[in-house]
Every structure is written in structure tokens, then in C-alpha cells.
Amino acid sequence: MDKFHIVVCIKVVPKPEEIAVDKETMLLIRDGVRSEINPPDMNAIEMALKLKDKYGGKISILSMGPPFFADYLRVPLAMGADHIYLMSDRNFGGADTLATTYTLAEGIRKIGDVDMVICGEESSDGATGQVPAGLAEWLGINQLTQMDEVDIDLRGKVARGKREIAGGHISLEVPFPVVVSAKTASNEPRFMDYTIKPWAFEEGRITVWGAEDVEVEDDHIGLPGSPTIVSGLEQAPERARKRQFLEGSPEEIADQLGKILVQAL
């Protein structure tokens, strides 16, 4: 077997407190909004890097989104990923999970020789959590979702995953290739490596693919490929925090807190 090859799918999302929706188009307003890498995707990157630390191999990063995503994709490059692919085309825009997973799956096919795909558990903006499973369906491969840990057996060509549940955990084992979703906060993402960061941000190459560069059917991508219509969206009323401070000794405070909690039940 050649080098173990992991593709990590990452999405760039607006910072949660800055999310606003265009009432007409029902799309997120991205202009003038601060963004970040979807936090669970940082856990996905760390999960991949841990496997690379242990077994070697290479990591490709894949994202579908507008050109400005590119700046953010340099972050995983500085953390230790090897290749960056950005699928960016106006025709990809407005995709629901069906069109998103179709497009990303075609990207993964084009990258080629992929043993494992790792996604975050869910995005902080769309938050459907359907992309990992959808990808596995389009690619016709196994899936290990909401994993706290994964390990691989290169000889047996299997991936083993562990999912914590109330009162225990579930262990799963599936043959490669496999799509994994990393549970949010399942690890602590390492900070960027400053021996590679200058290169990653100044010279690191990002491969950008448009619709023409991948073998996609026009009616499967973007808005035409998206049967889902977001028909309504409402802003949840903001709940003012009471910022109530309890006074007293730790025991007294615990006592008061207990009473408040009981009252709230």
C-alpha cells in the first residue's frame, strides 16, 4: 500500500455571533463578516494529523466555497497538511447538502487514491450534519460517524473508531476506504507550526478547481442540483443574560446555586 492518504473536508463559516441571513435569498450574508474554520473541522484536522504522526502518509484538505476561503485553508497547511484543494465556482453556489456532497465526492474522486475522508461532526452555520454520511453514500464507502478516536490497521486495511456514549462507548471497525466524522471537541487541535507557517502562508500551493475541472453534471450542482428550499428562517430572540453574581463562601454559593437550579426545573 502506498502512503496512507487522508482527505479532510473543511468549511469556512461566519463567526457565530456575526451570522446574518439575507431575508430575500435566504442565504448567509458573508460580506464584512469575520469568518473562521468551522470549529469541529479543526478537530477533524487534528484527528488526521494524529494518524499522520503515528503512521506517516499524507493529508489533503478539501473545501467547497468562494475564493476567499483560500486564506483560511493555509491554516491546516501550517498545521502539517500536505495539499490544499478548493472547489470554487459560481455554479457551485447555493448548494444544499445533496449538491454539496455530490460536488465534494467528485472532488475526492479527482484527488484520487483516498483511504480515509475525515469531516467535522457538523457545521456551525448550516448545521445539518448530513455531509459526512452523504459523502459516504456518493462514494459508496463505509462510514464512522461522530468518532471520539480513530485508529488504523495498515496491514488489515481497517479503521477502528470509538464513539463515547452515555455509560460507555461503542467500538466500530470497517475496511478502508471510509468516511469519518470527528466529534466536536474530541481533541485539542495543535497550534500552527511556525517552522512551516511562513511557507504555508506565502508560498504554499492551493489547487483551485472550477466546475469545468471536475466531472460533474450541471444539473447536480449548485442551486439547480439542490431540491431543498429554505422557505423560512427566523432569528431567535436574543436572551439577555442575567449576570447574577452569587456571594458568600464556596459552600453558601453552591447552596444558592442548587436552589436556583431546582427552581428552574
Binding site: E188, P189, F191, D193
Partner: peptide, 14 residues
């Protein structure tokens, strides 16, 4: 540099 800082500190830097 060796990716072995104290737990919690990468989160601080992020």
C-alpha cells in the same frame, strides 16, 4: 516546536 505544550495552551493560542 515538538508539539508537546501543556494541555489547554493550544486552545489559548487559537
Amino acid at each position: 516546536k515538538q508539539n508537546q505544550p501543556h494541555e489547554g495552551l493550544p486552545t489559548l493560542l487559537w
